[in-house]
């Protein structure tokens, strides 16, 4: 495999993709569990979504059940990208609204409804 193809096409085994996706997902969870900044929290969500999308694409490439299903996983990855875009648009609007109300996007600041 030429260097060009490797850069554009990535590794040839599924394990590499799954490992990257797992690390990405774990980092996303970690970000959501530790970040107090709302934007950092959203980034964590995005990372988890991307990990899922990467898994879809990888399984589509290496573990296609039937020939007719080929490409479905990749299409699903596209759906996830579109979903993630919509999600961040709504979430960022909420963050902005929160900022206008509390003058802060620290997640701990917005806990008026706590028991």
């Amino acid at each position: 495999m030429s260097v060009t193809a490797f850069i554009l096409a990535g590794p040839a085994q599924i394990g590499g993709y799954l490992a990257v996706a797992a690390v990405l997902f774990a980092l996303g969870v970690l970000a959501c569990a530790t970040r107090r900044n709302a934007v950092g929290f959203l980034m964590g969500i995005e990372m988890m979504l991307n990990a899922a999308a990467l898994n879809f694409a990888a399984f589509d490439r290496f573990h296609v059940g039937t020939a007719a299903a080929a490409g479905h996983g990749q299409i699903m990855a596209l759906f996830i990208i579109a979903l993630a875009a919509a999600e961040s648009a709504v979430a960022l609007a909420m963050v902005y609204s929160v900022y206008r109300t509390w003058r802060d996007i620290d997640l701990a600041a917005t806990s008026e409804l706590k028991g």
Binding site: A33, T34, L113
Partner: peptide, 16 residues
């Protein structure tokens, strides 16, 4: 009440 800390990070951590 104790569970409803209002800290979303804790919720995510607990769920994970």
């Amino acid at each position: 009440n104790a569970l409803q800390s209002g800290r979303i990070n804790a919720y995510v951590g607990a769920a994970a």
